[in-house]
Nucleic acid binder design. Structure first.
Lengths: 243, 243
DNA sequence: CACGATTATATGTCTAGACATATAAGTCAA
DNA sequence: TTGACTTATATGTCTAGACATATAATCGTG
């Protein structure tokens, strides 16, 4: 699962910018599966570079299975490749709409506070600063899909103070407004406590799949999020080809 | 995480041959982790090609995290990465030893029987044939690591009849004796039932991470396996870099 | 010896071409 | 209509250069 490769604090190079631009359009759903990406010669013109530079960006996206390239036909956005896609997508809205289901969002709670000891541990910061704590729920076809519990470091992401998380899911907002250099996902399992069970409409003690995601920009934690999926219903699927 | 390798029937191109040669030396252990692979200019000379061709091969291997490239220092074989290991490796023994822990294996049950309706559904076959059902436990440093529940279709894998699953874990045996063309992993969460709790030494009702893996050879299911990992202890970690 | 400055070198990116090749689309005949 | 043939075109691979940049090694100095 080699996902992307390069730190953002690298000197941005042209091919990485091209790759990023395209990847971002795909991951946000702006270019849905099946969409044909501009031809290499069009990208050459847009970015005023040689074909090899465009080709390098597209080749890497193809190697990551984000796009499919067909001679004479062009380059197309692939359907999400299961696990890697699920793990890559930082945006549940895109995940749900990619499944062809209707997306719903409810903000449960959003508070701004000085970082508690727990918050600081979670974000890996020492200094006490302000944080935003968000709890919200994502649903697919009006059925609860995932419960999100997020902490945003306001020192690292001051712009978040002015975002309206009642209108836009924090994942989407961050993806569009905040560049990051590194992310880590951890998958585990827990049983639902009262609050989780209530929010997801499942029984207390029912299994939940957990994805913890930490996002950094140059060694500084921007946000920590825990996503809880009803364990029996939601599945991460990865399909491989052997040799 | 592109596990998908290039088709064998591709016209072999030079950069692919270079990539394959190097990959093969790494995977066979001929070039162990830390080994410095030849410099680009040496590979240029060996393959009589331009640097861009060598560079393309090496870049792809680097994107796949098989090698690490450092300016001025050279290119080095990387240690196997964790998530890709978990998802790629069809063999828990390799997974545990890759973590530097001691591997233990206990066969709990191994029966050979005519496929029940449940078995047939799980394997996706219609005809009633013989199957082998295996339950076994893997441990790391003498602590239960995973419980395995496997079904092997004896029609599709007749050689399995003569394997000794008391001596060798079925995953290892299959990996070494049976070629496959496709595999699918599904990750979900459940709570431990009596039997699972007992086998893994955890409480009934404790969360477990589940990996279901199906393996096919040309549309024919060879084996279906469910792996249960104690949910709090075992974690699948994926780390990404942004661009 | 310790440490800062310099240098050599391997990789990183990029160009402006070239020819190869798969294939969608168009053409034409049965 | 259908099948066979042709053509146009987008991607696939490759070259022989160029300059940039990080850093291991070396050198020099206190």
């Amino acid at each position: 699962m080699s996902l992307a490769t390069d730190k953002l604090d690298d000197k941005p190079t042209l091919y990485k910018q091209i790759r990023r631009d395209i990847e971002s359009r795909i991951l946000t759903g702006e270019w849905p599966p099946g969409h044909r990406i501009p031809f290499e010669h069009q990208l050459m013109a847009r970015y005023r570079c040689s074909r090899m530079t465009v080709n390098k960006a597209l080749s890497e996206l193809a190697q990551a299975d984000l796009i499919e390239r067909r001679r004479r036909a062009g380059t197309f956005v692939r359907r999400p490749q299961h696990l890697s896609a699920v793990l890559k997508i930082a945006d549940i809205r895109a995940e749900i709409t990619a499944l062809g289901r209707s997306y719903g969002y409810q903000l449960v709670q959003c508070t701004r506070r000085a970082a508690s000891a727990t918050d600081r541990a979670r974000l890996g910061v020492r200094k006490t600063g302000k944080v935003i704590a968000i709890t919200c729920r994502h649903s697919a076809d009006n059925v609860p899909f995932a419960l999100e519990d997020r902490l945003i470091d306001l020192e690292a992401v001051p712009e978040a103070a002015s975002a309206d998380f009642a209108a836009e899911p924090p994942g989407s907002w961050l993806l569009h407004h905040v560049p990051w250099t590194e992310a880590e996902h951890t998958i585990s399992a827990v049983v639902a406590d009262d609050r989780t069970a209530d929010a997801l409409g499942i029984a207390v003690g029912a299994p939940c799949l957990v994805i913890d995601r930490y996002t950094w920009r140059s060694a500084r934690t921007l946000t920590a999020v825990r996503l809880l999926y009803p364990g029996e219903s939601h599945r991460l699927v990865a399909r491989f080809k052997g040799g």
